[in-house]
Design a protein around this nucleic acid. Structure first.
Lengths: 107, 107
DNA sequence: TTAATATGCAACTATATGGTTGCAAATATA
DNA sequence: TATATTTGCAACCATATAGTTGCATATTAA
């Protein structure tokens, strides 16, 4: 199908999915689908589709418990985006003002 | 239309556009469209569309000189992606092994 | 056991996206 | 001046995407 990095970037390129992901990251507990969809204006099915996309990118996991499916965030795939970015960091303005970048580049 | 960050993420979510962008970043000189498209299997018009998307995201600039249009990369918009990522860095595994993250979090 | 709740699946719609081809216009070269 | 090169614009096509609704099913609660 497509690259892992492409799958991840496409998943977060949608603003609604970023919102859903964010809500799950800051949530103190896993949330069932209905509860997530209650926070948005689009239908539950619309939310379910977004959740599937996020799950496909590895950005969320879902645990089924009885009739409910509890979703929680897994930010780890974003490390790949970070790595992709890292190469270009040396080319953008102000890069050398950033200590971490400096350390990366002298090693 | 849409968020700046959404525009940027959508631009880099396409693998062909990432390739084009990368080619321009590592190029030592600005490249005319025909020369860029010669490096890819898709048509010149296909490349032109991608260039427009990249330009719309601010990731490249284009200078017209005579009949030619010279393209060069501008990685600065990626700083916004980096900032978006930064928030989630604290939630991913191994974040504290990274000195830069550590420094960010004690300040 | 009956009713309510949470969900998945399928079908459908509208629009966006990635790609193509054909043609006209501007610029450069012979 | 005639020809070749570089490009933009417009139309078109196929598929992907973001969303909807309707219905069936499983689990929980009354």
């Amino acid at each position: 199908m497509q690259d892992r990095i492409t799958t991840i970037l496409k998943a977060v390129a949608d603003p609604t999915r970023r919102e859903i992901f964010h809500a799950l990251v800051v949530a103190t507990t896993a949330l069932p689908i209905t509860q997530i969809s209650s926070q948005f204006d689009i239908s539950r099915q619309g939310i379910t589709k977004h959740l599937k996309t996020l799950e496909g990118a590895g950005l969320i996991n879902i645990d089924t418990k009885g009739r409910e499916r509890f979703c929680y965030a897994n930010p780890n795939p974003l490390k790949e985006v970070n790595q992709w970015l890292k190469f270009y960091e040396q080319f953008w303005d102000g890069a050398l003002d950033d200590l971490s970048n400096y350390l990366d580049n002298i090693s």
